[in-house]
């Protein structure tokens, strides 16, 4: 249970909660064979922010999320979430700390219904085991009912997916699957939501919907968001702060407006031609 740190429940020797950053990525290095995927990346994420991470293809954005989720182990450096050193947390325990994510290539359970996928997001908040679940009386049953009600009222309503909740995920179009993946992440009741290109491959309307959902979740539920996104318009609109990566190093971190004026960023991210400037909306 040591991994479950609640704000305010720390012992006196630990620093007070409000002075520890919500998420601190501290000088991490990650290597694949000869390739340095990340070299010395550091940044803090403020609680309640929408933190964007941008950078060209292969810059190492997804690698950072994979390090936070404990899929990858950086060979140097540490990541702290609310003061907890994540390198000491088992992969499956990260969810219980309050970290949820979506994937660049959708990682849903394709053969299950939308509802079951979202229920799986609730896994760490449910208690029935192989005995009570198999007998399905009393506690297990009321738990299923309660969770289902909660999902219908909180998540399905919010994301406007009533119509598809009994559909098998594999049969849904791409845009809706992305939305279901967000729904599953939200069912985990996260404090920190990691989104890897949630708008990739979406049309304008779907992109706008998704941006609205992210803002809703951030503002109404107070969930901190780390957002990897290529669509600069979205990043400019909804993020509070932007980290720019290039070849595994951080080349800038600032507000969206400042970042878009930064010459290094413009050069690294988009090349130095005029078209790039117009892409950034300048």
């Amino acid at each position: 249970m040591a991994a479950e740190v609640k704000p305010g429940s720390m012992s006196k020797t630990a620093p007070p909660v409000n002075s520890t950053p919500f998420l601190r990525v501290d000088d991490i290095y990650l290597r694949f064979g000869g390739l340095n995927a990340l070299s010395g990346v550091s940044f803090d994420v403020q609680q309640g922010h929408i933190q964007a991470i941008i950078g060209p293809n292969g810059a190492g954005k997804t690698c950072i999320l994979n390090c936070i989720c404990r899929f990858y182990q950086p060979y140097r450096g540490t990541i702290y979430f609310q003061g907890v050193d994540l390198s000491k947390v088992a992969t499956h325990r990260v969810a219980a700390l309050g970290i949820a994510r979506s994937f660049q290539n959708i990682e849903l359970f394709k053969g299950m219904t939308v509802m079951d996928n979202i229920k799986l997001g609730h896994h760490v908040h449910m208690h029935s085991g192989f005995l009570s679940g198999g007998i399905y009386l009393g506690r297990a049953k009321s738990e299923e009912m309660r969770v289902r009600k909660e999902i219908e009222e909180r998540i399905i309503d919010l994301l406007e997916i009533e119509a598809i909740r009994k559909k098998v995920v594999g049969t849904l179009p791409y845009g809706l699957q992305k939305r279901v993946e967000l729904a599953r992440a939200l069912a985990m009741k996260p404090k920190l939501l990691l989104l890897d290109e949630p708008m990739a491959g979406m049309n304008l309307e779907e992109t706008e919907d998704m941006a609205r959902f992210i803002l809703d979740v951030n503002q109404e539920w107070g969930v901190t968001v780390v957002l990897i996104e290529h669509d600069m318009g979205v990043v400019m609109d909804i993020s509070d702060n932007v980290v720019v990566l290039d070849f595994g190093t951080k080349i800038a971190q600032d507000t969206p407006l400042e970042v878009s004026k930064n010459n290094h960023v413009i050069e690294a991210y988009l090349g130095s031609d005029a078209a790039a400037h117009s892409k950034l909306g300048l």
């Binding site: 229920k119 679940g133 198999g134 738990e143």
Partner: peptide
Amino acid sequence: NLARTRTGR
């Protein structure tokens, strides 16, 4: 029952 509860999922 197991299949439709937490453990089965």
